[in-house]
Design a protein around this nucleic acid. Structure first.
Lengths: 155, 155
DNA sequence: GTTTGTGCAAATCATTTGCACCGCG
DNA sequence: CGCGGTGCAAATGATTTGCACAAAC
């Protein structure tokens, strides 16, 4: 696994977080973080486990979940619910906030940003007396017009 | 349980759907539908079960889930994922589409509509080559400023 | 009468957790 | 060393399902 400059910085942020919290820097944590930082795709715990099966070092499912929880807590990862019965994760360090459009046919996930929507959401929240702490906007549709739409690809 | 005019029409829509699909009109289905149509609150399967416990007729959890599935399929009910590990349902017949703001402290759910957001979502989808089939916009926040905010109320 | 619905308990499935052993610091 | 981390298997919790009995048409 080659390390880009970005990946190096992200790894440093993770290690700094671990040290800061008095958590240990283990092989499993480094491997998982590296795998995650080396891709910008949305992934599932199961999918991550599969990818790491290839590795000489086997990592248990329980550990995967435990590490994902730490990274979410650290603000390095975001957890998404796209309507399936498992969660998706996305590494967000150095990524601006965005929303998602999910293809119901092939599972393709497209990111988009619209600052006007963001503003209108803030307005809706404050108008209703809420102090906004987060939001989730998912658009579901069909990307059939794309030539490479594959059915039931999901992990 | 008194039946308002609205409730009567909603019950009729449900019964029509059942007949149309060759499904039977059972006591359980009528009771569940009536309980649902008699309130405009968001509810969970568990909560619905509790409410029906009071009734002389006991309905099993399995049946609740089966009936909820039918009503969602019929377009009478909408299923929501508000970030908890159970689903919320909302009866939507005769209700215009709306999004939700959820209080992370007390679980209070406020509905809002913003047509500009709807338009911008449609634009985002079509701009990305998607044929939009649905969307879910949830804003999470804190309604602590409200005097009657109760913590951990959730069903 | 048949066929579909219901209740019960057992099965699923993603995620979490208890516990004995392992390895970082 | 000593405590947090890991792997395994068992626990959890919402939802689903198989099956025998009951109710609708």
């Amino acid at each position: 696994m080659q390390e880009s400059e970005d990946t190096k910085q992200e790894m440093k942020a993770f290690e700094d977080y671990l040290r800061e919290k008095g958590l240990k820097i283990t092989n499993q944590r480094l491997l998982v973080a590296q795998k995650i930082f080396s891709s910008h795709n949305h992934f599932t715990a199961e999918g991550l486990l599969d990818e790491l099966k290839d590795n000489k070092d086997r990592i248990s499912k329980a550990t995967i979940y435990r590490i994902l929880a730490i990274m979410v807590e650290a603000g390095l990862l975001e957890e998404h619910d796209f309507g399936k019965d498992y969660k998706y994760y996305e590494h967000i360090i150095g990524h601006q906030h965005h929303d998602h459009i999910i293809c119901m046919q092939c599972g393709r996930i497209v990111e988009f940003v619209d600052n006007r929507i963001e503003e209108l959401q803030n307005k809706a929240a404050t108008d209703n007396g809420f102090l906004i702490t987060g939001h989730s906007l998912n658009i579901f549709g069909n990307c059939n017009r794309f030539p490479d739409c594959e059915f039931n690809k999901k992990k």
